[in-house]
Design a protein around this nucleic acid. Structure first.
Ligand SMILES: [Mn+2]
Ligand SMILES: [Mn+2]
Ligand SMILES: [Mn+2]
Ligand SMILES: [Mn+2]
Lengths: 220, 220
DNA sequence: AAATAATATTAGATAAAGCTAAAAAATATA
DNA sequence: TATATTTTTTAGCTTTATCTAATATTATTT
């Protein structure tokens, strides 16, 4: 089964939206996610339905199939491996990799990915803390919770970010938050949900609820 | 100036055919080179003419412009850098890289190529001995001659291959010819142009004129 | 339950890249 | 030079992926 670049991008978006626990994935959601128009999405959904990577009944919504999941995970695997390559080997900053990986993920060569994976030493997570599916599409997720949902005095380790936009990542760089940092909740402001945390036992940091909700923590 | 993937492939083919010293590049030549039909080539020539990467007057032939050369060399630079990456870092054999590089050369990211070049230590030649243009499109070609044009007792070093097909490269692997090997002409058969050479002062090799004409040597 | 709003789909265009078959132009040959 | 052959281009069609505008369906309010 061969997918075009556009089909791979749509399927990946559908997979991600499906995983977000949303009851069902809407045409508008997909359009927003991949920056296109709902009319284009409707068209593509029909095609993806014919290729049986989703189950689609018009006006009724869609469901990704097992085949669809497998293919989406292959693309995600490639995307994340390339991100690791760009950061670890080419010294890209973690906010510079997304666009390039968005292109590289469509290169067709099983050998290339196999070798790249070996070359990078079979990494388990990408630069944003997201897990890298193995060659069979198996992905092991760690239990993690959003920073804004933790209570005072709880502690843990930053393991991932929800938002991978350059703006957000550069903000984290600036304030000194990074994947792997040990944190502890010092205070929570009832009024707006903003919090104060201690980073690596030495630095205190103040952040809005919005920022905190995009930081994922492994509790300890 | 932005070119599509197809346009880049055509322009690269035109550049290569132009460089081969042919008087003029024909529609049929281009079609053969990139495995398409002459009718498709005509169409594309019109488009490339409009984008001013070639000068084109129908039925009269074409000439690549300075702009066209610069863009073609950018694509060639990317192609060859990726080939070096695949061989040096991912341990691809030199006959396995072409198809993948054909895809990777179209990835759009100046930063990526800059970093890749640095990571590979600014290589000057690709795995087939072809020179890698620098970031400004300058290529330094070494003086080199086809092995079949050398005379008895002359010696030199294999520096490149003209044919990069897997079949040819695997044949060279099998008989033990490689880039960098020191060679000396032992005998030439008048009848069919086949030759006998000494490789690295220890092994004699017999090859047809056809094979010899695809091996390029730096004479010494 | 009817009217209104929101969401989703279809109709009809456009652009890129390819194809086959037909026509036009250039080249070779008798 | 006239005819035949080869080369090149055009005409018309197909597929993929977009878009806008119009229509259809579902959801939400009075
Ligand atoms: Mn992509
Ligand atoms: Mn990522
Ligand atoms: Mn290519
Ligand atoms: Mn090469």
């Amino acid at each position: 089964m061969e997918l075009t670049t556009a089909e791979e991008n749509y399927l990946k978006a559908i997979y991600h939206l499906s995983e977000e626990g949303k009851k069902s994935v809407s045409t508008n959601d997909i359009a927003a996610q991949i920056q296109t128009k709902p009319a284009s999405v409707s068209d593509m959904l029909r095609k993806l339905g014919e290729k049986e990577v989703i189950q689609y009944r018009k006006y009724y919504g869609l469901q990704i199939t097992e085949l669809g999941k497998r293919l989406a995970l292959q693309t995600i695997r490639k995307h994340r491996l390339w991100e690791v390559f760009l950061v670890d080997k080419l010294h890209f900053a973690w906010d510079e990799v997304h666009e390039v990986a968005e292109q590289l993920e469509h290169i067709q060569s099983p050998l290339l990915i196999e070798r790249l994976d070996a070359y990078l030493n079979y990494p388990k997570f990408d630069p944003h803390g997201d897990p890298i599916p193995d060659a069979y599409g198996d992905v092991r997720t760690r239990p993690r919770c959003a920073l804004n949902e933790m209570d005072i005095d709880q502690s843990g380790q930053i393991v991932a970010v929800k938002d991978s936009s350059a703006a957000f990542l550069r903000y984290l760089d600036k304030v000194g938050a990074y994947i792997g940092a040990r944190i502890k909740i010092l205070d929570k402001v009832e009024f707006d949900g903003s919090i104060e945390i201690l980073v690596d036992q030495k630095k205190t940091l103040f952040m809005s609820k919005d920022v905190a909700s995009n930081i994922l923590v492994l509790q300890s």
